[in-house]
């Protein structure tokens, strides 16, 4: 009926529609960066690791019991004399992560239980953020603390008790890393424990159960899955942590489970291999990428499993 006005409307609509399409596509491109980063990580690690595995067989890397990349001194014997067995590094990493988790799990879990089940709202309101301060402290600060305060204390107490403790020990690094992980575990478990329905607790209290009975026999069993998920996430953190171990764990690649000895980890070796003078393409530098690939797969695997578990748990109590 009014063709001219109609046309105008449509035209204006078309112009802005194109502009909007461009904006939307632009946003889509931005969100693809996340994928691009992952691809970038995988490709760069895999490519350099591939170059490494052309010099050192995969089997020797994965199952070798000795790590001594430093022995390749002369340029004409590239990679030939170095020993690139990742197992001593893995042992060190596992040892330190284990110590860290052994410290953080009870402290974090008990803190979370106390805060969710016992603390008055007022107390909870200041303790929770204070605990989370621990998560905001840069790891280099923890490293300094470990090397300067904790390691000497452990060495002195150790030698006082007749043990031979090296100045850099897995115990010092693990202990401090454990402190770092406390808020991580406590706030994740806090979420999980709070998600257990109130009806569960009421049923238990209604039967005359005490709080501890309710917590240990009803709440925690119901939250187990979620707690396991959060512990896995924390473990993945521990494995990938770098600065604390660089500053407090040492460089000695030993196949040992003695927490009083100095051990080295995968992350420490990546840092040592890639800082300082380096020639690209030597087996030594490439080894860092192989370790990193290994580390990436390990943490990613733990993470995917943990997220799946936590997700399933959330659905369960949604």
């Amino acid at each position: 009926m009014f063709p001219s006005t109609n046309l105008q409307l449509r035209r204006a609509g078309r112009g802005s529609k194109l502009k909007e399409q461009i904006i939307i596509v632009g946003m889509l491109v931005c969100s693809l960066v996340a994928i691009l980063i992952t691809i970038g990580i995988v490709l760069s690690l895999a490519f350099e690791a591939f170059l490494f595995f052309r010099k050192v067989p995969v089997f020797d890397f994965l199952f070798g019991l000795e790590w001594s990349p430093q022995t390749a001194i002369r340029a004409d014997q590239v990679g030939a004399s170095g020993k690139f067995g990742v197992l001593p590094l893995l042992t060190g990493t596992v040892l330190i992560s284990f110590i860290a988790m052994a410290v953080a799990t009870p402290l974090g879990l008990y803190s979370a239980v106390y805060l969710t089940e016992y603390a008055k709202p007022k107390t909870r309101n200041w303790i929770k953020p204070t605990l989370e301060l621990l998560a905001g402290i840069p790891t280099v600060v923890y490293g300094f603390f470990a090397a300067l305060v904790v390691a000497p204390i452990i060495r002195n107490t150790g030698s006082g008790a007749g043990f031979d403790v090296s100045s850099e020990s897995a115990l010092a690094a693990g202990l401090v890393m454990g402190i770092m992980l406390i808020p991580f575990i406590s706030s994740l478990s806090d979420d999980v424990i709070s998600a257990v329905p109130k009806a569960m607790r009421e049923a238990s209290y209604g039967l005359g159960a005490t709080r501890v009975e309710t917590i240990t026999q009803v709440v925690l069993p119901a939250a187990t899955v979620g707690i396991v998920g959060s512990l896995l996430l924390a473990t993945s953190r521990a494995i990938g942590e770098t600065m604390i171990v660089v500053m407090a764990a040492g460089l000695a690649a030993k196949l040992t489970l003695n927490p009083l000895e100095a051990v080295t980890t995968m992350t420490v070796q990546i840092v040592t291999l890639l800082t300082g003078d380096q020639e690209f393409d030597s087996a030594k530098t490439l080894a860092a990428f192989a370790i990193a690939l290994f580390l990436f797969i390990l943490t990613m695997g733990l993470n995917v499993i943990a997220l799946k578990i936590v997700d399933k748990y959330k659905v369960h109590y949604a």
Binding site: P197, G206, G208, V218
Partner: peptide
């Protein structure tokens, strides 16, 4: 007191345990 005076709630709230364990809890 709560052992003498039991309670049943609006929404059935069995524990996520077996039937036996649910009853055996108290």
């Amino acid at each position: 007191l709560r052992a003498r005076i039991g309670m049943v709630f609006q929404k059935a709230n069995p524990f996520p345990k077996s039937i036996f364990e649910n009853v055996a809890y108290g």
